[in-house]
């Protein structure tokens, strides 16, 4: 699984950090998303899918995921 984030779209809601704290963080200066782990282990797949579904700005993509959470 490969995760992409779009920092231009991100509105700094922090929802992804709540869903998958090992994969996402927020920049100190402006709260915009930072990708900690672009290729997270399978154990956190469900959490990353949660983050994709819950991102209010549609700023997270999960490539190579057959079963989209949407």
């Amino acid at each position: 699984m490969r995760v992409h984030v779009d920092q231009d779209r991100c509105c700094g809601s922090g929802m992804c950090v709540l869903s998958a704290p090992s994969v996402f963080d927020q920049r100190d200066e402006d709260g915009i998303v930072v990708l900690l782990d672009p290729e997270p282990p399978a154990e956190v797949l469900a959490d990353v899918r949660d983050a994709v579904a819950g991102c209010p700005a549609l700023a997270i993509e999960l490539a190579g995921d057959e079963e989209r959470a949407e």
């Binding site: 231009d8 509105c11 700094g12 927020q26 402006d30 709260g31 915009i32």
Partner: peptide
Amino acid sequence: HARLRRMLTADFMIRK
């Protein structure tokens, strides 16, 4: 919207 909101996001982010 993003330009103005981003002036405040750091103040209200979880860690802060």
